[in-house]
Amino acid sequence: MARISFIESIRQAQYEELARDPKVFLMGEDLVANVFGTTTGLIEEFGTDRVRDTPLSENGFVGAAAGASMVGARPIVDLTITSFVYVAMDQVCSIIAKSKYIYGGQVKLPLVLRMCMFYGNSNAAQHSDRNYPMFMGMPGLKIIIPSNPYDMKGLLKTAIRDDDPVMSFEDGTLWSQKGEVPEGEDHLIPLGLADIKREGTDATVVAVAGGVPLALKAAEELSKDGFSIEVVDPRTLVPLDRDTIIRSVSKTGRVVVVDPAHQSCSAASEISAIIAEEAFESLKAPILRVTTPDTHLPFFPNGEKALLPSKHRIVSALKRLLN
């Protein structure tokens, strides 16, 4: 295993799957120039047919990925920043999510839409969305949301091999994070399998994406006060590993759900509802959510920082449950 960055783990997953399966190809804006660092060495190896630059035509090339996948190709689309998916909503929601269903299973759409959540660095509201919850509300789309390089690579490789459309939400605040990641073909993480990032007995934090490292820091801080906090990372939101979440909450009886998305109808809301429905008897305290309030992220840094989940806010929520 080598220690690599989150970005490098994406590059490796793409590289290995392009090499493994000639049906796989990659397209998106500014890939050849390697603007985001996820295509280093890919052009040299696979050429500009299989690593293809697109014009600024999101609805066009996302829809083209749908069509290509219908005839047996396996496109990976790099939409760069997740806010740009709105331009392609027509194809994502009406074609990609629904074609297999409305045509009664006659067709499958094995494609991956990759997107970076570009928040926390004063890029203002139009560039800073963490919009996966919207797509949880759209059946037919699988959603991976990794929190470290190991998971990123393993989940992306599985997503590329999956026969359903998968959206990959990649948290920009984690880009430079490093971790141990296996090289080679076999590093596959099944979709729908949560990971317990830290074991504990007093309270559970269910956290997604950039919320996970914050939850781990909060758990570490509270351990100094003698509290034992478990951190569960669902890793994929569709499918969602309910069992692991329920098992953890049944053990601890207290839960905080951390999610960088806006609070209303967030992933945290859905997870909280599932816990309330399936583990109500084991709860010793209310379920608390640490999310972004229902206002846009402002450009001014002091405002943006305050709105996003932080170690401090997670610790506050946990203390409220533990006292």
Partner: peptide
Amino acid sequence: AFDDVYSERVSDFYG
């Protein structure tokens, strides 16, 4: 950050 947009329930975010 809560001005210029209709937003509800802004006072109960922990921390």
